[in-house]
């Protein structure tokens, strides 16, 4: 409707295709790391060096060479085919290999190193499980507490509510930068070092301020009559939260939950100083550990990265609308 209107009012001169061109070019570069991760994850180092840019064609080449010592059987060597070999057939090399007897191209799905993925699951799987546990529990508890807290501030102007609100908002201004050193010793004194609970608890504390801030504004904007009607019916505050706040605030709670989950998923500074045992590693520490330890088998590493992204891909698929709209709407609200 509006597009048609716009077209009739003189923007005929301005075509959209140059914009599309620029946008697509930028997006291609933006998506390039993702593409590299996916295509390298199916390769081994040899085929990655041979063909770093494009996905592997599903062909293998079997080369038969005469043995270096006479009288021994021929050496059979399997390698992945390059794209030129797939498209134009196998051409003799510029410097002919005198030992080469035959080279044959054949269709072979075995060039895709599914083993990389299996290996990736083996390496990163436990880390992913730990992270899912920490992020889900943390997000759930953090938001539950925040809903109660926001309800307290939004429902009535209770005595001392102003002071308490100030205590929360002050933290919004104070950067948490100096905290990490004393936080470490605090967790040590509480005996929480090297536990996943430490991450959950600190995550809950960190999420309170922002979530309460957003939720308070939202709950205050809900029609007061709803609460009063519920109260008439004899609903307690808990029931009011259940019947009024939760259904009406579901979209904003969803958006906050996704943001909280993403934040916890990406956190690695706290886990890095809290966790010691390999069994407890979350994704962040695990990946840093992996980066330091492994002889670089890029295929395996990239497939580990891919496995690390799968939970977010699942969330993305289910909540994309919530995500895109939520971010935009949240931005308008401030």
């Amino acid at each position: 409707m509006s597009a048609a209107l716009n077209d009739s009012v003189g923007s005929r001169r301005h075509r959209d295709w140059p914009k599309h061109l620029v946008l697509i070019a930028i997006l291609c570069i933006e998506l390039f790391p993702l593409y590299m991760m996916l295509q390298v994850s199916m390769k081994d180092n040899a085929s990655f060096i041979q063909n770093p840019w494009l996905p592997q064609p599903p062909y293998a080449v079997t080369e038969v060479r005469s043995a270096p010592v006479a009288g021994q059987p021929d050496v059979v060597h399997n390698r992945t085919a390059t794209w030129t070999e797939v498209l134009h057939g196998i051409t003799p090399a510029l410097v002919p290999d005198p030992a080469l007897i035959s080279a044959e191209k054949h269709f072979d799905l075995g060039v895709y190193r599914v083993g990389n993925l299996v290996n990736g699951v083996k390496i990163v799987g436990p880390y992913v499980a730990n992270t899912v546990f920490v992020a889900l529990t943390g997000t759930f508890l953090s938001l539950s507490l925040a809903i109660f807290g926001a309800y307290f501030f939004a429902r009535y102007r209770m005595p001392f509510a102003g002071v308490l609100w100030g205590a929360f908002m002050l933290l919004m201004l104070l950067p948490g930068v100096a905290n990490i050193v004393p936080l470490f010793t605090l967790l040590k004194d509480l005996g929480l070092l090297n536990t996943l609970s430490a991450l959950i608890i600190v995550g809950i504390a960190g999420g309170q301020v922002f979530n309460i801030f957003v939720l308070r504004n939202f709950i205050e904007d809900l029609p007061k009559d709803l609460f009063e009607a519920a109260e008439m019916d004899g609903a307690s505050h808990l029931q009011q939260i259940k019947t009024v706040v939760l259904p009406l605030a579901a979209p904003i709670i969803g958006t906050l939950a996704i943001l909280a989950f993403l934040g916890k998923w990406n956190d690695f500074l706290l886990p890095l100083i809290v966790l010691r045992d390999k069994e407890l590693f979350t994704l962040g520490v695990g990946l840093i550990y992996l980066d330091g330890e492994y002889v670089k088998q890029w295929g395996q590493i990239m497939s580990a990265y891919f496995i690390a992204s799968i939970p977010l891909i699942i969330i993305f698929l289910f909540c994309m609308r919530l995500f895109v709209r939520g971010l935009s709407a949240g931005a308008v609200k401030g």
Binding site: E30, L34, F268, S309, F316
Partner: peptide
């Protein structure tokens, strides 16, 4: 939507 797609890769990755 395409803009949000890269967000499926964890920041650390």
């Amino acid at each position: 939507v395409l803009l949000v797609v890269p967000m499926i890769v964890p920041g650390l990755v």
